[in-house]
């Protein structure tokens, strides 16, 4: 039983980084495709389309930071905490990444028709980023209470 609990602890440590990477890959993939489509249709401003499509890459960075914060010797006493915080931080980052990718794709799609709304069209993506930051920051805060912090 202890082995399983310890394994779950390790899952919790690595989950935010791995799931964050998946989130960024999917989000950047969706937004990147929209950027390429917009490049086909427009005559300039390509750089900003590609720039927007890189927005969801932040989630893997948040995941890496959470992973290093959770990284400690895994014991039966702290494995549950590591698993819970790590896994749910990862799930939060995953959803934020995917939906930010969609929001960025919509922003690119709208901005290519009306360049003047470029800044405003990024507001939804920025709000989603805020939710990701909540998950990230409070994962760091709560991890301080898990036994075994270095």
């Amino acid at each position: 039983m202890n082995e399983l609990v310890i394994a779950l602890g390790w899952v919790g440590i690595f989950a935010p980084m791995a799931i964050g990477a998946v989130a960024s890959a999917i989000g950047c993939g969706i937004a990147g495709q929209a950027g390429i489509g917009a490049i086909l249709e427009t005559e300039g401003g390509y750089g900003r389309y590609i720039g927007i499509s890189a927005f969801p890459s932040t989630f893997v960075i948040y995941g890496i930071v959470v992973m290093f914060t959770l990284d400690r010797e895994v014991t039966p006493e702290n494995a549950g905490g590591l698993f819970g915080v790590g896994l749910f931080a990862g799930i939060a980052l995953l959803y934020c990444g995917i939906w930010q990718g969609r929001a960025c794709a919509s922003a690119i799609n709208a901005a290519k028709e009306k360049p003047e709304i470029f800044g405003l069209s990024l507001a939804p993506a920025a709000i989603i980023e805020g939710f990701g930051v909540f998950a990230f920051v409070f994962a760091l805060v709560i991890s301080a209470g898990i036994p075994g912090a270095v």
Partner: peptide, 11 residues
């Protein structure tokens, strides 16, 4: 999200 690129390429 199947046709993100296609839709974005249509004016």
């Amino acid at each position: 999200d199947a046709y993100v690129m296609l839709i974005s390429s249509l004016p």
